Amino acid sequence: MGALLGGAACLIAGIREKILILESVGVGMFGAFIGGDFVASILSGGKTNDTVFSMSSLGMAIGGAVVALGLLRLMRRAVGPQHVTKGPRRRD
């Protein structure tokens, strides 16, 4: 689910660089894992759901992926664009 959300975020944002696509997909997967597994088990009082599919876990996975992708976007704004040509500053 996180990989799909990360890919969809790249399509919506118009990202074409492969490294940024991989980064978004990875962050989406991480967020989905954290939301769907970790946060869902905390909110359920530590009870794990061993069923194959759960709507609450799916919702938490989607929420976690969206939050993680939002944080990635904020970090990219704070740091600035990444360029291959970016190197040490020249002294004038």
Results as ranks from 00 to 15, higher is better:
residue 2 G to W: 08
residue 3 A to C: 05
residue 3 A to H: 03
residue 4 L to G: 12
residue 4 L to Q: 07
residue 4 L to Y: 08
residue 4 L to M: 12
residue 6 G to F: 09
residue 6 G to H: 05
residue 6 G to W: 03
residue 9 A to H: 14
residue 10 C to S: 03
residue 11 L to N: 10
residue 12 I to L: 12
residue 12 I to M: 11
residue 12 I to D: 06
residue 14 G to K: 04
residue 15 I to C: 04
residue 16 R to C: 10
residue 16 R to I: 08
residue 16 R to N: 12
residue 17 E to L: 06
residue 18 K to V: 15
residue 19 I to F: 14
residue 19 I to C: 11
residue 20 L to Q: 10
residue 20 L to D: 10
residue 21 I to D: 00
residue 22 L to E: 11
residue 22 L to N: 10
residue 22 L to G: 06
residue 23 E to V: 05
residue 23 E to A: 10
residue 23 E to S: 10
residue 24 S to K: 08
residue 24 S to Y: 15
residue 25 V to H: 09
residue 25 V to I: 06
residue 25 V to A: 04
residue 26 G to T: 04
residue 26 G to M: 04
residue 26 G to A: 04
residue 27 V to I: 13
residue 27 V to R: 08
residue 28 G to R: 01
residue 28 G to P: 07
residue 29 M to V: 08
residue 30 F to L: 15
residue 30 F to P: 00
residue 30 F to T: 02
residue 30 F to D: 04
residue 32 A to F: 12
residue 32 A to E: 05
residue 33 F to L: 08
residue 33 F to P: 00
residue 34 I to Q: 06
residue 36 G to M: 05
residue 36 G to T: 09
residue 37 D to A: 13
residue 37 D to K: 04
residue 38 F to N: 12
residue 39 V to C: 05
residue 39 V to W: 14
residue 39 V to A: 02
residue 42 I to A: 13
residue 43 L to S: 06
residue 43 L to R: 00
residue 43 L to E: 14
residue 43 L to D: 14
residue 44 S to E: 15
residue 46 G to R: 00
residue 46 G to P: 08
residue 48 T to A: 15
residue 49 N to S: 09
residue 50 D to R: 04
residue 50 D to T: 05
residue 52 V to P: 06
residue 52 V to M: 15
residue 53 F to N: 09
residue 54 S to E: 15
residue 55 M to S: 13
residue 56 S to F: 15
residue 56 S to T: 13
residue 56 S to K: 07
residue 58 L to W: 15
residue 58 L to T: 14
residue 58 L to V: 15
residue 58 L to I: 15
residue 59 G to N: 09
residue 59 G to I: 12
residue 60 M to Q: 10
residue 62 I to T: 12
residue 63 G to L: 14
residue 64 G to L: 11
residue 64 G to W: 13
residue 65 A to C: 06
residue 66 V to L: 15
residue 67 V to G: 04
residue 68 A to W: 08
residue 69 L to V: 00
residue 69 L to M: 02
residue 70 G to K: 06
residue 71 L to Y: 06
residue 71 L to H: 05
residue 72 L to F: 05
residue 72 L to R: 11
residue 72 L to S: 00
residue 74 L to R: 08
residue 75 M to R: 10
residue 75 M to I: 08
residue 75 M to C: 07
residue 76 R to M: 05
residue 76 R to C: 02
residue 76 R to F: 03
residue 76 R to I: 01
residue 76 R to G: 06
residue 77 R to K: 14
residue 77 R to C: 09
residue 77 R to M: 11
residue 77 R to Q: 10
residue 78 A to Q: 04
residue 79 V to C: 10
residue 80 G to L: 00
residue 81 P to H: 11
residue 82 Q to K: 07
residue 83 H to I: 02
residue 83 H to L: 03
residue 83 H to D: 01
residue 84 V to E: 02
residue 85 T to G: 02
residue 86 K to E: 13
residue 86 K to H: 05
residue 87 G to T: 01
residue 88 P to K: 04
residue 90 R to G: 09
residue 90 R to C: 12
residue 90 R to L: 15
residue 90 R to T: 11
residue 91 R to D: 11
residue 91 R to W: 12
residue 92 D to R: 03
residue 92 D to K: 01
residue 92 D to G: 09
residue 92 D to Q: 07
